[in-house]
């Protein structure tokens, strides 16, 4: 990849003109930030990998090829494939309504959207059990029609959607509010249709927010433990997601395998990095062509 200036906003500004802090301050800030991240993020990551590879590469690879591990990976991928698009669509729609219009009760709405963040994962799982469980509202009906929601895949997906519900919306709302609606209004005045305005004007402006939102939503989807644990039923090889499988392995004193599987989720962060870099590069290419 070429010069690492991609993220700098509206990069028509040559780097030299960019006002910044004195070099000493800059390096001090970088040092503080890195020290903090090392203590809180790099060390845990290193701990995961050091334990995953404790017994060597072959043990690591064997752990990953175990059938129960593979089925947990499959289930996690299915969950993410459904959860992320749904929450993305919701996030963009909600952000459009909230950021571009004023209406009474807006703060209430934003707060309600935030709510799933603050709901303890334990509760997020429990509420679906309270509704779909055998003692719940429609549990007996589901039972009679032999439809499984909780302790089966649909319950896992529902709980995951709940937990990752606000990610995209929350990422986009402040961004779109900061941008205002002048550009869209101009486009409409110039005769663009609503959809055209959205795709040509709004979308390019919020692409970073969308990318971050999707990345966060996806990462959290794959990593969610608490809520899924409540609705999963923990049936080996059937309703275990990757995080649940990690717990099972750990509880079987199979530490190396547990951390090997956990390291997959840590790799996710690194894949994220690649995706983001490619996206940035493509976008820059696009800008260059115009």
């Amino acid at each position: 990849m070429s010069a690492p200036v991609a993220i700098i906003p509206r990069s028509q500004n040559p780097k030299g003109r960019l006002q910044t802090e004195p070099a000493a301050v800059r390096w001090l800030l970088i040092a503080i930030a890195l020290a903090f991240l090392t203590l809180f993020l790099a060390l845990p990551l290193a701990a995961v990998f050091s334990q995953a590879f404790e017994k060597g590469l072959s043990v690591y690879l064997t752990a990953l090829q175990e059938p129960d591990t593979l089925s947990s990976i499959k289930l996690t991928l299915i969950t993410a494939a459904l959860t992320v698009p749904l929450n993305l669509f919701f996030g963009v729609t909600a952000a459009w309504a909230i950021a571009k219009f004023s209406f009474p009760g807006k703060n209430l709405l934003i707060t309600l959207i935030d709510l799933p963040f603050s709901v303890s994962p334990v509760i997020s799982g429990l509420i679906y059990v309270l509704i779909f469980g055998l003692q719940g509202w429609i549990g007996p009906w589901l039972q009679a029609h032999d439809i499984k929601i909780v302790f089966a895949v649909p319950g896992i997906i529902l709980a995951t959607i709940f937990v990752t519900f606000p990610f995209v919306a929350r990422e986009l709302i402040p961004l779109m509010e900061a941008q205002g609606k002048d550009e869209e209004e101009a486009a409409l005045v110039l005769g663009a249709s609503g959809l055209q305005t959205f795709f040509r004007v709004t979308l390019p402006n919020i692409k970073w927010g969308i990318i971050y939102g999707v990345i966060l939503c996806n990462a959290r989807t794959m990593g969610e433990f608490g809520a899924v644990s409540v609705v999963s039923g923990h049936i080996r090889g059937m309703t275990n997601t990757v995080p649940l499988h990690v717990e099972i392995l750990y509880n079987e004193y199979n530490y190396t395998a547990a951390f090997a599987v956990a390291s997959l989720l840590a790799f996710l962060a690194l894949i994220t990095l690649a995706v983001k870099s490619v996206a940035e590069w493509k976008v820059r290419l696009q800008l260059g062509n115009e």
């Binding site: 003692q135 909780v150 039923g233 923990h234 049936i235």
Partner: peptide, 18 residues
């Protein structure tokens, strides 16, 4: 097939339809 967990939690899962 096996499902393992804390005894109380497992009982609750069965009560709720596992």
């Amino acid at each position: 097939r096996q499902s393992h967990g804390g005894s109380g939690k497992q009982a609750r899962a069965v009560i709720d339809g596992l």
